[in-house]
Structure formats: C-alpha cells, structure tokens
Amino acid sequence: MSAIALSDRQGRAASTGMWLFIASIVMFYGALFSGYVLLRAGSTVWETPWRTGLAAEWPIAVDHWFRTMWLGIAVMQSRRLSGTGVPVAGLPRFSWVIALAGTAFVWRCADIAGWLASRGLVPATSVPLACWYVLTGTVALLVAGGTIAAVWVALEPVPAVQRARRGAMLQRYWLLMFVLWITTVGGLYLV
C-alpha cells in the first residue's frame, strides 16, 4: 500500500471514527435529556431555585452568557484549526486557546455547583436540581474531555498533515459541545 493511499485510509478511518463517536455522545446525552423531559412533563410542580428567589443572588443570564462565550471562543478557534484537512500554521497556538476557554468553562461550572451546594442546594434537594446538576455536569465533563484533547493536539509531535486531521476532528467535537450546551441552557431555563 502506497504512503498516500495509507494516509487517505487513515484519514477516512479517523473521520468515520469521529462521526461515530459524536453519534454515541448524542445518544448518551439524548438519553439524559429525554429523561429530563419525561420527568419535567410528568411533574405538576417544577420548582427550580432560580425561579423561586435565588435569581437575585445568582445572575443566571449573565453567568450562562459568559459560559456560552467561552464555548464560542473554543468553537471559533477550532474552526481555524482545519476545515479542509490542509495543514494550518500556528495550530498549536489555537489549540492552547481552545484548552484555556474549555478550562474556564469547566471551572465556572464547578464554581457554580459549589456555590449552590454551599447554600444547601445539593442534587438530593429536588428532582429539578438533580437534573440541573446532571445535565450541566455532563456537559462540563465532555468539555473537560475536549480540553484534554486540545492539549494533546497541541503537545504531541506528529507530522503536519496528521495534526491538521486531528484539528478537524477537534473542530467537530467542539461544535457538538456548543450544540449540547445551547440545548442544555434552552431546556433548563427557557422552556
């Protein structure tokens, strides 16, 4: 098998693998989200702390706007990694920016969870709060995974073509993270 043919195959395998991984994540998150929808639809009362007095202390809209912005930065940077599989100059730098934005997002999620817990609002308090913890926590975990992947792309010394391919994979993943986060915010606060 020639080197070019092998590279083509590796590229196709990587692309297929990434799409399958994304499909699997979508199904996982879909199970969590559909659980939330079923629980919420089946409840006559759905009292969330941010609708019953906590909103004044916790500026939800601003907080989530910031978190969405961090993810947005990550996605925008990931789009610069590679759209076509062509090697991109400065790729490690973009990867570091993504990693930073991802870290900021995860830190903010953990901070908010700690803040709620310090007021006695733990997952066991009510089903709405439990849903909040699980859905936002899951996105935070997935973002943490993407952050580690971005660091890996930045650090591992591999040929430029291979690095560009990894950049393209990273781009798809971060787009997925953005969609998941928008779905979470919309589902938890706007519906």
């Binding site: 399958l20 879909g30 899951t138």
Partner: peptide, 12 residues
Amino acid sequence: LLAFPALQGAAV
C-alpha cells in the same frame, strides 16, 4: 454504539 449510551445515561 447507538443503544448502549441510553443505558449509560440511565446508569448515571
């Protein structure tokens, strides 16, 4: 790939 994640979600 597509069915096991539902059980993982439930397990969480």
